[in-house]
């Protein structure tokens, strides 16, 4: 928040609709470098759509989105999408897709796998990894890309507690390395552990947008109070 004039993401008055149904409604957000933002809300509140909007996988129907170029972002899905290749080749592929030279790709891949504790599994077939290992591989792929903005869409849903912890460790380290993170999650504990700021959504609208401590100690809206009590 040192440079309030230069947000990394600036969303202004965005509506997104598909057919007749509104998916996002009058959304405006500014996110600054180094922030760790948790996006909370019930299923269908619009969390994933907000992330996809930032990643340009979703186009606004109206309004304006300014976000880093695709090459400066990385996106982590709830269900990791892995290629039918080795663990290592999954990471190399992402780097080569970004036009990295083969030498650099090989070196960075080894670093990323080491950082995500996957080095011993480097030559395993990616699709045979456990759920936690698969998500760590998706993170390694993101790690290798050294994104300015990391978008994580419920990255630990369906994972065992040990795997959740490992994934959070990697996310934290990426933040310490300078990445700005936007994390959609159902896990309130995770939001408390990782986030400096909370955006609470309901029915495609942003209901609250405050710092994490304030959100968890004194939520203002009825929807947020009901959500935290549930």
């Amino acid at each position: 928040m040192s440079d309030a004039a230069q947000p990394i993401v600036a969303i202004t008055n965005v509506d997104v609709s598909m057919g007749s149904s509104a998916i996002l409604n009058r959304v405006s957000i500014r996110i600054h470098p180094g922030e760790r933002v948790a996006v909370l809300g019930a299923n269908g509140a619009g969390k994933s759509s907000l992330l996809r909007l930032m990643n340009a996988l979703l186009d606004p129907s109206s309004g304006n989105v300014v976000a880093p170029a695709a090459a400066e972002q990385a996106l982590i899905f709830q269900r990791p999408v892995l290629l039918k290749r080795s663990v290592r080749d999954n990471v190399v592929f992402a780097l080569l897709a970004r036009r990295t030279t083969a030498d650099v790709a090989n070196r960075v891949t080894d670093e990323a796998l080491a950082a995500c504790e996957l080095a011993p599994l480097a030559h395993r077939y990616a699709r045979t990894l456990s759920g936690g290992e698969q998500q760590k591989l998706a993170l390694a792929r993101a790690w290798a890309l050294t994104p300015k903005l990391l978008l994580a869409d419920e990255p630990t849903a369906n994972l065992a507690p040990a795997a959740v912890h490992a994934v959070e460790m990697i996310l934290r380290r990426m933040c310490e390395g300078g990445a700005t993170i936007v994390l959609a999650t159902h896990n309130r504990g995770q939001a408390k552990r990782l986030a400096t700021r909370v955006i609470f959504m309901a029915d495609g609208e942003i209901v609250e947008d405050v710092d994490a401590k304030t959100f968890f100690t004194s939520p203002k809206s009825a929807a947020a109070i009901a959500y935290l009590d549930a």
Binding site: R52, N55, A56, L57, A69, A70, A71, Q73, A74, L75, F77, V81, L83, K84, F93, A94, A97, R98
Partner: peptide, 25 residues
């Protein structure tokens, strides 16, 4: 299955198709 991944990696249409051909080999 791969559309979002390829989109987030910034693959061109033909890069995506080439990768799909390899992935479905």
């Amino acid at each position: 299955e791969y559309r979002d991944l390829f989109g987030s990696l910034g693959l061109s249409r033909w890069q995506s198709v080439a990768t799909l051909l390899y992935e479905t080999r």
